[in-house]
Design a protein around this nucleic acid. Structure first.
Lengths: 119, 119
DNA sequence: AAGTTACTCAACCAAACGGTTGACAATCGT
DNA sequence: ACGATTGTCAACCGTTTGGTTGAGTAACTT
């Protein structure tokens, strides 16, 4: 049921400003004010962005004015999801390549195009 | 300037239905109709979802009724972004651990808490 | 060439998003 | 204890999103 969590994480990172916040937090913790300074949007807007990141579990704070910290474990959730399907897709391509190679190697006259269905 | 692309990719994957489409396409190509069948939303809705995935470069088709194919290279874009900051954050933690260890190891009576600032 | 099947486009709707401003709450120095 | 600073909440606004239905287009079948 971390389905929902993954949605929140991806949604959080879909915004360039929030990705930039994450990028900056990866090199140093910082307060809300410090984080807001470089952007030309209001402090409130940045505060909202941080709430989104916090709800996604990407970021945490011990108290109101404490520096914001990046929660790096969440990245594992993403990489796990990504790698899973990336790998699966790659394996499929390899199988396809193998099939094509097999078709290529047999002489076209023989009836050898029957791929064994190993579901 | 693939800033925008990354936004579209993350946004595309923020939706559970679209993630499921990607998951299914990772094991086999499929037509729009086939893809739409399991969900209880209209075919048009699924068609829209596929357009979002296509605009993000996650999916492609050769023609209208051709099977949809997963474009696995895009995953690299994501993993690269993620790994970059994940790694950076981890290094920071390690530096922090080292600092704490150093503070621990020195006897509390000596004035040795002066961390050398190696910026 | 005609008809069916498969898909997309267009218009619309409610809800969510990213931003604003203004008022409020909490925390730090003094 | 007081005032200044720092951050959040609330209400609002325009735009985007995910869904709908209905009409149109493209591509196979015969």
């Amino acid at each position: 049921m971390s389905e929902d969590r993954l949605s929140r994480v991806f949604a959080a990172l879909a915004d360039p400003t929030r990705r930039d916040l994450v990028a900056r937090l990866s090199s140093a913790d910082a307060t809300v004010g410090e984080l807001a300074a470089p952007y030309d949007v209001s402090l409130q807007a940045v505060s909202k962005h941080l709430k989104v990141l916090e709800d996604a579990g990407l970021v945490s704070r011990e108290s109101r004015r404490a520096p914001v910290r990046l929660e790096a474990e969440v990245f594992d959730l993403m990489t796990k999801w990504i790698e899973r399907y990336q790998q699966q897709a790659e394996e499929r391509y390899q199988r396809l390549d193998a099939l094509l190679a097999e078709m290529q190697e047999s002489t076209p006259s023989r009836e050898s195009t029957r791929a064994e269905d190993a579901s």
